[in-house]
Amino acid sequence: MVRRWSPDGIPAPIAAYNHLAAVPEGHELVVFAGQVGTLSDGSLAGPDAEAQARQALANIEALLGTLGATPANLVKLFTLVAGREHLPGLRAALRDTLGRWFPDGDVPPNTLAVVAGLATPEIVVEIEAMAAVPRRHPTGE
């Protein structure tokens, strides 16, 4: 499975993440496009960062399922939030979801960037992911 760790002698992470993650042998790295808080009908889960982040993470979990994978396969997250005022809602969604996905605290690396805006003014959270999934056959397809 994915190995995640924060080496001794390096400053501790400032939030819930590890500094490093490694893809195990026999796995391939799958890169996810940024996921936003859209429901299956294309509408936003809500106007706020917490609702959008929860849905973006649910979308990541659903995409993992299409690969026969789970959040345990996550190697890295990259989180974008459109403005510091949205950080509390984003952090609540991350805390709850990552706590459910990784009850042992073995969370993947996660970069968080506060940006001026995302694809549309209504979107306030976008989350990219990378996962290590077992190779299906030698070509990786």
Rank of each mutant, 00 (worst) to 15 (best):
M1P: 07
M1I: 02
W5S: 07
S6G: 04
P7F: 05
P7A: 05
I10G: 10
I10P: 04
P11C: 11
A12S: 06
A15Y: 07
A16W: 08
A16M: 12
Y17Q: 02
N18F: 00
A22I: 03
E25S: 15
E25P: 09
H27C: 09
E28S: 05
V30K: 07
V31H: 13
V31L: 11
F32C: 01
F32M: 07
L39W: 09
D41K: 13
G42T: 12
S43C: 05
L44K: 12
A45V: 04
G46L: 03
A51S: 15
R54G: 10
A56P: 00
I60R: 03
I60W: 08
L63C: 09
L64K: 00
L64A: 02
T70A: 04
P71W: 10
P71D: 08
A72V: 10
N73W: 00
F78H: 14
F78V: 06
F78G: 07
T79D: 03
L80I: 02
L80C: 04
V81I: 13
V81E: 00
E85N: 12
E85G: 15
H86G: 04
L87N: 03
P88L: 02
P88A: 05
G89C: 02
L90A: 01
L90N: 00
A93I: 10
T97L: 03
L98H: 08
G99A: 11
G99I: 06
R100V: 13
F102H: 05
F102E: 06
P103V: 11
D104M: 10
D104E: 14
G105F: 15
V107Y: 05
P108I: 00
P109M: 06
N110K: 03
N110G: 03
T111I: 07
T111E: 05
T111L: 14
T111A: 13
L112S: 03
L112T: 07
A113M: 10
V115E: 00
A116I: 04
A116D: 15
L118C: 11
A119L: 15
A119E: 14
A119D: 15
P121H: 08
I123C: 05
I127W: 01
E128M: 04
E128R: 09
E128C: 08
A129S: 04
M130W: 07
M130Y: 14
A132K: 01
R135S: 10
H137P: 06
E141D: 12
